[in-house]
Nucleic acid binder design. Structure first.
Lengths: 192, 192, 192, 192
DNA sequence: TATGAATGAGTCTTCATTCAT
DNA sequence: TATGAATGAAGACTCATTCAT
């Protein structure tokens, strides 16, 4: 009967580490982030991290998974909306909502992809899978709008987001995101 | 008859280091690249690098400058073309030509921007200036096409490139670049 | 029965490092001493030193503190003596006792002060504080002897020690210390 | 007939290097001074230094010699004075005149001695010889004053100077020098 | 499971000294 | 003699990973 006192443990700790990692990796970048940074953010002693993850890479992997689940949740919410156009526009809305964070740190998905693609470990495939899922969902929306070129449009839309995120971040200017989102909205309307 | 034997030196060496750095930083990423890597690529002993650059950051800066000059040259070539639409399409053509390199390592400008934006040194501002220049040139083309929304279009075009570069790299698929470039070409045509 | 085998650790190690540093810095000088030297003297792997001290300077600071505590102990012992003249003469006695060490390596306090005063870090202020404390104690003794010029006398006495230590060291001649101490003793007697 | 244009050369350069070294070593300390520092101060290209001095140590040795000659000159000037007491007091006067420099950088002789005594090269013997010469001269003055304990007094006086220089430097307080010099003057007067 | 401490390989940087001309 | 450039041997510091308890 005497346990509390400490923060949750067991599997909770594992998840806490993963999401702390996701956040810190986003804000600091993979290369600039040490295990100690993540451990501190998760309020877990450094040595203990290795009980849950055998290597730093495994922790990064878990962070990608955590981020993936976040995206899944977002997509699930979008799926509540009635029409594919609604859903895509709501996606744009989400991007705009995150513009301040993006201006500071870039798109979490994109910056991870960019950094990990330069590394030999399999982590680049993990983040690619996350983007692939998003791409597939987007493609499905365009397909439901009756577009035969759904894949191409999906690629264009996701690319537009990645690109504008990069510029928003580079110039530290959230308005870039807003303007581009508006433009994309008109574009989507024009496709129906 | 006595010309080679030793590699060039003097100011040539400085430039050799800078462009070796530009290339290695592109292919390996800033964080994964050690000074020794660059030195080896330039065939210069590590200690000697410091004769030309006081710190690693200064070398990175020089690499950005070198990359910037490359872009300037490219732009200068484009400026030979008669109409703004020609020039923009030729820009697209350049992107397509580089698709294999992009598929492997991403867009050199974009990956640099992405990595450096997470760092406190002023390097992020240097790469931002490079992108800003490209953006301004693009804006001028759209303006010459009579578009009042030239800036917005320029941002959209450059963003499209950055985004598709990221996807091309993430999925190691050069065709993504080709397809998107074709789409953008049609888009440019539609603006006249 | 199972007490040794491994050297002590935990906080004991931190102190071991600090006093090893104090000793090595005294015998080799700050500039000539590498972290590896100190680590070896303390029987600690180099990398581990950084667990206790973030920089070499912090370790030097700790060494100064350690030395300071040694002096405090010495002063505390002197304070047991009945009269200020006794205490001052006992101080002289201590100097004479250390004459061999001084002939080899100089006065630990003085050589540290001399070396650190040429450096920009705050370390020069730390060692100055140590000397200041000694000066204040000495001044108090002269004051208790009823001297109005106690401060001036204190400065003269401490200066005499520093100066004779330098000569003793320069000429590797411990007798210089003995002779000068005797002279100072007579001088103290003459002040009553 | 076409030579000037450049700063003096030949033996002049050697001396310029030696005295530049003397000054820089005094203000920066031996350990903190690089060959490049000295070369720059002497306005001599680094590579050229090695034409005049085979090693850094030889340059330091030359700096000691230069300093020694400066002291010789000072002593020669003192020798113009009528009585030994005059000469010693003039020596004190010189110390006071230099108090600002001493407060900043310590006594050039003493700081050199202190730093070099920690090194294995023979340089410590060179600086010891310089001090020995000064000691001998001082001893002679006291002898001429009829003191049988001339050597002891000489040691005391030079030690006093070294010690007060250290304190003056440590506390960055030139007044310490002034006060102590006055005290020593009274002391000299009391010896006659 | 938990945790402070330990370890060692790797990286940047400095600098005396040497070399080619 | 003169000089810019070259070289390599340190040295400080970081950090993922491991260990002992």
């Amino acid at each position: 009967m005497t346990d509390s006192k400490k923060v949750e443990r067991g599997p909770g700790k594992r998840e806490r580490l993963a999401s702390a990692a996701a956040e810190v990796l986003h804000t600091q970048g993979v290369a600039q982030t040490t295990l100690a940074d993540i451990a501190k953010a998760a309020e877990v002693p450094v040595g203990n991290v290795y009980y849950y993850f055998k290597t730093k890479d495994q922790l990064v992997e878990a962070a990608i998974d955590a981020h993936s689940r976040t995206l899944d949740g977002m997509i699930a919410a979008l799926d509540e909306l009635p029409t594919p156009a609604d859903r895509l526009k709501a996606l744009l809305g989400g991007w705009v909502e995150q513009r301040e964070l993006t201006a500071r740190y870039g798109c979490p998905t994109g910056t991870l992809a960019s950094e990990l693609d330069k590394r030999a470990d399999g982590l680049d495939r993990s983040i690619a899978a996350v983007i692939e899922a998003l791409l597939n969902w987007t493609e499905r929306q365009f397909a439901q709008m009756g577009r035969a070129d759904a894949r191409e449009l999906a690629v264009a839309l996701i690319a537009a987001h990645q690109g504008i995120s990069l510029l928003t971040n580079t110039f530290r200017d959230p308005d870039l995101m807003t303007t581009e989102a508006r433009r994309l909205e008109r574009w989507i309307d024009s496709l129906t």
